[in-house]
């Protein structure tokens, strides 16, 4: 009952062009049936995410560890709430990040859980920068 060959094949890596995404904007792409948020963060959002003491977080993880160095403005996360799998809404909530309408979890501009029932940060999918304006997810 594990995924069949065609399902696995359809889950192959995808390439996403980042050049049309302006600062402060974000896009949602689908990979393996999961929504992936790609946010072009503003300076303010990055500073906010880095100002928080890591130890005070429910799931401690530094912002640097969640983005690729040299591409600090790009946040790529799987847009699935780690509580029960709803899709959080971008640019909502008290932390300039994501807000899940189902059970009220709030994530910050680094996709880290800050408030609510979710146990973990939004997952970062495997991805690499193919060039400065293009990433490959998967």
């Amino acid at each position: 009952m594990n995924p069949d060959a065609s399902t696995i094949a359809a889950g192959a890596p995808i390439e996403v062009d980042l050049s049309p995404v302006a600062e402060g904007q974000d896009i949602k792409v689908f990979w393996r049936g999961k929504p992936i948020y790609i946010s072009h963060r503003t300076k303010k959002q990055i500073d906010e995410a880095r100002a928080v003491p890591v130890a005070s977080l429910p799931d401690p993880q530094s912002d640097e560890a969640r983005v690729k160095s040299g591409h600090d403005q790009w946040l790529v996360v799987i847009g699935i709430c780690t509580h029960l799998g709803c899709i959080p809404i971008a640019h909502e909530g008290n932390y300039d990040g994501f807000f899940c309408p189902c059970h009220g979890s709030q994530y910050d501009s680094s996709g880290r859980i800050r408030q609510g029932p979710a146990p973990a940060n939004l997952a970062v999918p495997p991805y690499t920068f193919v060039s400065d304006t293009k990433i490959q997810i998967g």
Partner: peptide, 17 residues
């Protein structure tokens, strides 16, 4: 969860099973 879904998320294989 993967066994229940038959894929990477709820989808057609899930509906079938």
């Amino acid at each position: 969860v993967t066994l229940l879904w038959g894929g990477y998320s709820v989808g057609n294989p899930t509906l079938n099973r």
